[in-house]
Design a binder for these strands. Structure first.
Lengths: 338, 338
DNA sequence: CTGTTAGCGCATTCAA
DNA sequence: TTGAATGCGCTAACAG
């Protein structure tokens, strides 16, 4: 390339970096022409190697099949585009081993920063980042012992919003349903927030039903429990039981099961409300609390970017508010199907 | 690092590449220790720069919000893992400009191969790959003028499966619904396959309803058309109209609209069948034709891998069969909700 | 078995 | 304004 333009590589480099003020018009044109002729593309890897920054930003997600993740991703992509980063998306597929492997990999590829929607509480998995001096920002979940910026949903506020809505609708029995929550901070917070929201309104909260989608036995047990609760409330002759589900994947499992159990009219038996607003919620009229997913992703990138640029200081926490999306599922009188 | 272990960098390199037979036990241990002490991670970029291969594999997708894409991705990831590649996922978000930008970017990053779920027919967008000598494999869609391996669904077979099923169920009116199909090969094929499948069975096919989700006016027009057709069939007093939708995103739009129009019991008015098997299909009992998405992704990686390894020859085409998943939507007598 | 030498493609001194 | 020299971190000859 250097000699194709009849010049030294220095000038080519200058051209690539847009230092036009330092190039004679003639030379500039010769280089331009040569680039066209050779279809020349500078090698980003080499550039990165030389100047120590490659504009790569890692995005490590736990579960791509969760619509939440995809939505966050969109915010991340938009921000990366705006700030000039190339997002490197890695999918751990809910496997801690994958997560570990990707952290290693991203470290060796020297990404400049990393956004982590971590699987769980394994601080050890993220430790290589520290060693490599790679700034990280957590999304949705904290990791014990790992001090980093966090951006996510204001879980307390969101749950309170849902509880208030259900009470306003006149439901007197509310059952909270959540995945095993000890290891995942956002689930833990939602479970706690539910108890507190109920208590604050003078209602005792039944213990949460815990449903682990990765464990058939646990799932079955949880679904049976839910069925029993629905039955009990039904026999008591009160309103339908309201099911407050902590996130969309679980809500889907519950809804699927209720449908098998009670048929197409299952919503006459139980009212469903879920955090997350997946595409099917609108389709069957489920009230949800929508997370500001796009903003979460965008903000996360802004945070890593600041850290990359050298901002120091204590870990920051940004909790964005959710929005209640009212649909038919929580209206307490269901109109008969015409 | 070299001197931390008290040796030359060559030996370190050898260690990293697992050439243990050529290293004395003593040296091996010294290097191992040094690695621990320094928390040393080899720089992949530098390695890649040197040997001309960086184990990076690009995956350019048109639309991550489409469940199809996610599922294909899982196959891609699995295959990458198996073959030692690091998948670099790029999301064009249905924007041709993004697609162009990513192709450029991936080219400058010198990915070794690329799997493309292209937006449309723009061969020009993919041209840089040729210049860079980067092998590409197309997924689901061909790109006119771009000669490359292709792996996707056997559209003809899949559509025929669906048509046969609907006829078996006794439906006498079938309406095909599809996105603008001129630019996208898979849609084109499905539309054609529908006409052919009908003709082969001695039924004339009504022209397909074309619905463009990105165009509000078009969407409205299409939905009105569908409503009119449903009405006409209804008045004629025959069976419900069967709607054969070419993919899940469109099916969702149609289902949502029918629900608003006819209420929760909308399935009494129209039978829905769709290619793709999204999570909500099970939830509301929609018959679908499931694509072998995982296998598609896996096979695509195997193909690029072979090309990377130097396999030459004509472009190959692999069309995998879909599977009919029968659900309540196409049973011609709907049981009354209990 | 081990170290020395030479570059991968580029950006950054420093001189000219 | 330009170019030559130097080195980013690593691997691949080539010698010892």
């Amino acid at each position: 390339m250097a000699r194709e333009a009849g010049t030294g590589k220095t000038s080519v480099s200058r051209y690539l970096n847009g230092e036009m003020q330092v190039l004679s018009e003639d030379l500039r044109q010769r280089i331009e022409a040569a680039i066209q002729r050779l279809n020349y593309r500078p090698n980003q890897m080499a550039r990165g190697l030389k100047r120590g920054r490659n504009r790569l930003l890692g995005m490590l997600v736990a579960d791509l099949t969760n619509p939440y993740t995809i939505e966050v991703l969109q915010g991340v992509e938009a921000a990366c585009h705006a700030l000039g980063y190339m997002p490197l998306i890695c999918h751990a597929a809910n496997e801690i081993e994958m997560e570990r492997r990707f952290v290693q990999l991203l470290t060796t590829y020297r990404v400049e920063g990393l956004i982590v929607n971590a699987l769980g509480a394994e601080e050890a998995v993220l430790r290589p980042l520290r060693g490599g001096g790679i700034p990280a920002v957590l999304v949705d979940r904290t990791v014990e012992g790992f001090d980093a910026d966090l951006v996510g949903l204001d879980n307390g506020d969101a749950v309170s919003l849902g509880v208030q809505h259900l009470l306003d609708q006149g439901f007197d029995a509310i059952q909270f349903i959540v995945q095993p929550f000890q290891q995942v901070s956002s689930r833990r917070e939602r479970e706690r927030a539910f108890r507190e929201a109920m208590a604050a309104r003078g209602r005792p909260a039944e213990p949460a039903v815990v449903l682990d989608p990765n464990d058939a036995a646990s799932t079955e047990r949880a679904l049976a429990e839910i069925a029993a609760r629905i039955d009990a409330v039904h026999r008591r002759g009160g309103k339908r039981l309201a099911l407050f589900v902590a996130n969309a994947p679980v809500a889907l499992i519950v809804a699927r099961h209720l449908r098998t159990q009670f048929g197409a009219a299952w919503q006459d038996r139980a009212a469903l409300l879920s955090i997350d607003d997946p595409e099917w919620a609108e389709l069957i009229g489920i009230t949800t609390i929508r997370q500001p997913t796009y903003d979460i992703g965008y903000k996360a990138v802004e945070f890593v970017h600041e850290r990359i640029e050298g901002v120091t200081g204590d870990a920051r926490v940004v909790l964005l508010p959710g929005t209640l999306v009212e649909r038919a599922s929580t209206v307490h009188v269901i109109e008969a199907a015409s």
